[in-house]
Amino acid sequence: MSTPARNQASFILGAAALLALASTIVLGLGLPPTLEQGPYARLIAIHPPLAWAAYLAFGVTAVASVLYLWQRTRSRVWDRVAASSAEVGVVFTALTLVTGSIWGRPTWGVWWTWDARLTSTALLLALFLGYLALRGVQTDVHTRAKRSAIAALVAVVDVPIVHFSVDWWRTLHQGRSLAQLTPQSDLDGSYVAVMLLGFVAMTLVYGWLLVERYRVEALEEHFDDQGLGLALEERRAEGEAVAVP
């Protein structure tokens, strides 16, 4: 279940993630204040990368769900990947909302407003919390996996809606930050560099969390299966003694 090679890989990934995250924080806090937002622009080093990690996590959940639903690739591995990635994605989505809100208070003047970007992101969080709640419903392994895979494919539709909401509708939220990463844009050079570092850091953090969370998921299923086997044996023993019709 946990081979030395895998532990080592996870350790290296974790160390890289920690290093990248620490660098992002140090360099992010050291960014110069900007013309428009003053010191608060520094939150931009982590907010878009957090949102990206959430997109990535739910994207992985969707791909793994398809691989489970497709007969030829069906494996419990994909169900575990989908579940683990969704939980990690929920953490990143929540942090996207929290950091956005903390940025919005001093810059917009409000913690929250119901514009298309914020609303669709809140919806994304609700959808995947629902997905996790659905996974908590007791049933057999295959039914749960199939049911959650379909739910994940419904929920993931909101990811492109969140991303393009700022183009499709009028919002208080600014345009896509990623679209601004072009040479002729008005981004300060240091902002481009730190934001890119932030994207790398959050991607690594996501990858490491996924590996660790997958391990927990696999072990829990291992014990669940064992527990089920034990329960069946007990039933059989009882059945012999009481002789249930």
Partner: peptide, 15 residues
């Protein structure tokens, strides 16, 4: 009764 400042995604250092 509420003012919200709309920002762009421009990050130019104060200069």
């Amino acid at each position: 009764d509420r003012i919200m400042v709309k920002h762009t995604s421009e990050y130019r250092a104060e200069n």
